[in-house]
Design a protein around this nucleic acid. Structure first.
Length: 428
RNA sequence: GGAGGGGUGGCAGAGUGGUCGAAUGCACCGGUCUUGAAAACCGGCGUGGGUUAAUAGCUCACCGAGAGUUCAAAUCUCUCCCCCUCCGCCA
């Protein structure tokens, strides 16, 4: 959510910036509604004030033992005028609120302008793209060959876009998550969190999944007819960032760095034909997430830092990758700036996204009223929130299988993971 | 699942439907006193919105959430949520 005052006073600036990311702000509609709102709110509050004053004087008159009948008669019309104005105002504010919840964040000035992923800008690459003197297999063949990836049973049990992992592959998957968590907690200064996988609607509004992207989520049945059901998290960003919802922290506590390993659930509505083979796009996948909550002046430093934290994981695993800065048209709803890390997948002969690191500035903080109080300051200020994958575990597994594959179909375990694999050097 | 008790400012804890945004204590921040500190004393001390150049004034809202009764609700009514105690069940 953008700052309401900013949106009002500099709507043309906002519209121009949003245009860069392909979002058309309805300036005329907003301006008209805002004009009505202002007039109506001032009028309503004036009526409210009048009623408060009169009610108070009725109380005082009664306390003095005076006849209050004439005073009551005077207030009669006021009440219904006030009720009408209040109802109208609530309706109008509801409309404005609904509109503002659907407006995406403004891109940072350093973000390259472009309309889609083709215009993302490569920042740098790391690692050697491996060359094989045999025909490379993809992770599906490798995994099935090793009796570790069981797509058949997953389909039977749940359906497409699910996986059953077995044996050494399951262990490798677990090892990856452990390794990532340990690296973030021991080397990067994050606190490990275990969080709920089912969240309420307030949390989803807080991080911006709602109201606009409800169809991307799995929702549980409401407990009662009017009740609100809970939803499965599409990313740990939701529960972790919402830790700060409705709180005011001391400036001295900043920055707050949190990490969590969770499954993520995505409906993938609208991506029917894409990545149907393999582990790349699943309804359920594990991810280790990093979240930072920082002083507004530090958020761009934190963004670079988090990108490095994610890169460190790939480097320790020896996986070649590249970093791209997403262009204005390819960024997510709440981000002002995003880096994607893309890992090399030999079987696809291309780089695929394995991490996304974003600064949301105050966009989420404003929705969830996450604030801090500067030492000695009177008013609390909004925090900045950042989130990044560190990394998507399933896709990392894919990258390991494919990049470390041997001619006989076995897979060498990267050094960094061996302690987590009981010293095993090779699987399959 | 059954029975009972509760949700008020950072914490503790008052609050007969009317002058309550809310007593009091603690904590915290200024100040006086003191060589310094403590104590004592004086003062301050919530959040969001609107208006506005204003983080000045004025104003509206907020006592778990929502709805209702009333000229007027922290206080009365209803619904929901959460917490606590006991019993049952359970990983």
């Amino acid at each position: 959510m953008l700052d309401a005052k900013f949106l009002r006073s500099e709507i043309e600036t906002a519209a121009a910036l949003l245009k860069k990311r392909g979002y058309d702000l309805d300036v005329a509609q907003l301006t008209a509604l805002e004009e009505q709102r202002k007039e109506l709110q001032v009028r309503t509050e004036r009526l409210q004030n009048e009623r408060n004053v009169r009610s108070k004087s009725i109380g005082q008159a009664k306390a003095r033992g005076e006849d209050i009948q004439p005073l009551l008669a005077e207030v009669g019309q006021l009440g219904s005028d006030l009720d009408a104005a209040k109802a109208e105002l609530a309706e109008l504010q509801g409309q404005l609120q609904a509109l503002s919840l659907e407006v995406p964040n403004l891109p940072h000035e350093s973000v390259p302008e472009g309309k889609d992923e083709d215009e993302n800008v490569e920042l740098h690459t790391w690692g050697e793209i491996p060359s094989f003197d045999f025909e490379v297999k993809d992770h599906v063949d490798l995994g099935e060959g090793a009796q570790g990836l069981d797509f058949k049973n997953a389909v039977k049990i749940s359906g497409s876009r699910f996986i059953v992992m077995k044996g050494q592959i399951a262990r490798l998957h677990r090892a990856l998550a452990q390794f990532m968590l340990d690296t973030h907690t021991q080397e990067h200064g994050y606190q490990e969190l275990y969080v709920p996988y089912l969240v309420n609607a307030d949390s989803l509004y807080g991080t911006g999944q709602l109201p606009k992207f409800g169809e991307d989520l799995f929702h549980t049945q409401p407990a009662t007819e009017e009740g609100v059901g809970m939803s499965l998290i599409p990313t740990a960003e939701v529960p972790v960032t919402n830790m700060l919802r409705d709180t005011i922290v001391d400036e001295a506590e900043l920055p707050i760095r949190m990490t969590a390993h969770t499954p993520c659930f995505r409906s993938e509505a609208g991506s029917y034909g894409r990545d149907t083979r393999g582990l790349i796009r699943q309804h359920q996948f594990d991810k280790v997430e990093m979240v930072q909550v920082v002083h507004p002046e530090k958020s761009y430093d934190a963004l670079e830092e988090m990108r490095q934290h994610a890169e460190n994981i790939l480097q320790k695993l020896g996986l070649p990758y590249r970093v791209v800065t997403l262009c204005t048209g390819d960024m997510g709803f709440g981000a002002t700036k995003t880096y994607d890390l893309e890992v090399w997948l030999p079987a696809q002969d291309t780089y695929r996204e394995i991490s996304s690191v974003s600064n949301c500035e105050a966009f989420q903080a404003r929705r969830m009223q996450a604030r801090f109080r500067a030492a000695g300051a009177k008013k609390p200020e909004l925090l900045h929130t950042l989130n990044g994958s560190g990394l998507a575990v399933g896709r990392t597994l894919v990258a390991i299988l494919e990049n470390y594959q041997q001619e006989d179909g076995s897979v060498v375990i990267p050094e960094a993971l061996r302690p987590y694999m009981g010293g095993v050097e090779k699987i399959g």
